[in-house]
Amino acid sequence: KTVHVNGVQYDFDNPEQAERFAKEMAKKAGLQIQFHGDQIKIE
């Protein structure tokens, strides 16, 4: 899974790890999470 945070890309082999990371980042920055198939976007 790939997580995009403000244009920066983070790759994870483990989907659960990717989602946990995305939730942490979104919570910290007060941003929205969008799921697009294999990609998670935080903007």
Results as ranks from 00 to 15, higher is better:
K1R: 11
A26I: 04
E24R: 03
K23E: 13
Q17V: 06
N14C: 13
Q9M: 08
A22H: 02
K27V: 11
I40A: 04
V8N: 04
Q39H: 13
K41Q: 10
V5K: 01
Q17L: 09
K23P: 00
D38Q: 10
F21I: 03
F12S: 01
H36N: 13
E43P: 09
V8F: 05
P15G: 06
A22I: 12
F35P: 05
K27T: 12
L31V: 12
Y10N: 00
N14A: 04
E19P: 00
E19S: 05
E19W: 15
K27A: 13
Q34G: 06
F35S: 07
E24L: 05
H4G: 02
T2I: 06
D38K: 03
E24P: 00
A29G: 09
G37S: 08
T2G: 03
D38I: 09
F35L: 09
F12P: 00
P15K: 11
E16N: 04
N6C: 14
Q9G: 05
N6D: 09
A26L: 08
K41P: 06
D11V: 14
A22C: 08
E24Q: 04
A18E: 01
T2R: 03
K1I: 15
Q9E: 05
T2V: 08
K27H: 14
V5M: 12
K28D: 08
N6A: 07
D38R: 00
A26Q: 04
A22T: 02
A18V: 01
T2M: 04
Q32A: 09
I42S: 07
G30S: 06
T2C: 12
I33K: 03
E43D: 10
V3R: 00
R20P: 00
D13I: 06
H36I: 13
I40E: 06
K23Y: 13
L31A: 13
K41S: 10
K23W: 10
Y10R: 01
H36D: 12
K28M: 11
V8E: 05
K41L: 14
D13G: 03
P15W: 14
N6P: 01
D13P: 07
N14W: 04
I40T: 05
Q39W: 11
V3L: 04
Q39F: 12
E43Q: 10
F35T: 07
N6S: 03
A18D: 01
Q39V: 14
V8M: 08
Q39P: 08
D13V: 05
I42M: 08
K1L: 14
F21D: 03
T2L: 04
D11Y: 15
Q32L: 12
A22V: 10
K28N: 11
A22P: 00
H36W: 13
Q17H: 05
G30T: 04
G37Y: 08
D13S: 07
F21A: 02
E16T: 05
I40M: 07
T2A: 03
D11H: 15
Q17M: 10
N6Q: 05
Q34Y: 13
G37I: 07
A29C: 15
F35I: 11
M25L: 13
Q9R: 14
G37N: 08
